[in-house]
Design a protein around this nucleic acid. Structure first.
Length: 263
DNA sequence: TTGCAAATAT
DNA sequence: GATATTTGCA
């Protein structure tokens, strides 16, 4: 019956009914130790990194790292929210960050998936509505592209342009399509995003983070403590912080709220 | 406020 | 050259 889909959907929706509860995602993003090291607790002020002068690998590594924030070379943080009117070089959407974006949109629903809401849900310090809006636009195109492709052919096996690389990196909730038909039948019980496990396309992104663009080091925070095990965010010149994701080829619970337990 | 488009940078 | 991101405008 049709409950098949509505069932899990309903349940899933009940889990994230209040956006206010999904806001503290920042906390999950940042490691406690890291937060302390940066003095950014959780309800204080966001962290401020230092941009170098080129790109900025968000660094959402595996366990938890900071999303992205603007940082300048000489301006150190001494105030509180300098990243408010500062210009960010270029935001690099990493698969992890992208996943958060998709999750937020999935939880919000296409009808509520507006840049503003998404940005708020993401609660990513440094993320601005513009960034999300821009990305959202691209994301929609990607979804639309997928629909068009899947609509006639029966199978999505690969076939995503590079533009979809990043999008393909994150699971695409089947609700993103055009779920405008309340009735009819379960048309998309499952929608394997296709090419979910690619391991040969990280050249662009990996390179960006591999240390080809910039090395995001927090040299401004009063790092009293050496990097023990939590301060290994982006500085990974030898390791691609791009874990394909844990859920490969399955939405499983792709909607796993932000509290990404732990990578 | 959002969406789309174009321009620019890498 | 291509791709991605950013910014401006409607």
């Amino acid at each position: 019956m049709r409950d098949d889909e509505s069932n899990w959907f309903s349940k899933w929706e009940e889990q994230l009914p209040k956006p206010e509860e999904l806001i503290p995602i920042s906390q999950t993003l940042i490691t406690p130790d890291l937060a302390i090291a940066f003095d950014i607790g959780t309800s204080h002020n966001p962290i401020n990194h230092h941009y170098h002068h080129q790109q900025q690998p968000p660094a959402i590594s595996t366990p938890s790292s900071q999303p992205n924030s603007g940082e300048f070379d000489s301006s150190e943080l001494g105030g509180d929210e300098p990243a408010r009117t500062l210009k960010r070089p270029r935001l690099v959407w990493t698969p992890q960050l992208h996943k958060r974006f998709v999750d937020a949109v999935a939880h919000l629903g296409i009808k509520n998936a507006v840049p503003k809401t998404i940005m708020q849900l993401m609660s990513v310090d440094g993320l601005t509505r513009e960034n999300v809006a821009s990305h959202l636009q691209k994301y929609r195109l990607y979804l639309k592209r997928m629909q068009g492709l899947s609509s006639g052919a029966g199978g999505f096996s690969g076939g995503d342009p590079v533009t979809d690389h990043l999008f393909a990196s994150s699971p695409v909730p089947a609700h993103f399509l055009h779920q405008s038909h309340p009735v009819s039948d379960s048309f998309l019980p499952y929608m394997p995003v296709a090419a979910l496990q690619q391991q040969h396309h990280h050249q662009q992104m990996a390179a960006a983070v591999a240390g080809h663009h910039v090395h995001r080091h927090f040299g401004s925070a009063p790092l009293s403590r050496p990097q023990s095990q939590s301060v290994h965010m982006v500085g990974t010149p030898v390791r691609n912080p791009y874990p394909d994701d844990q859920e490969s080829g399955n939405e499983k619970r792709a909607l796993t709220l932000f509290p990404i337990g732990d990578d």
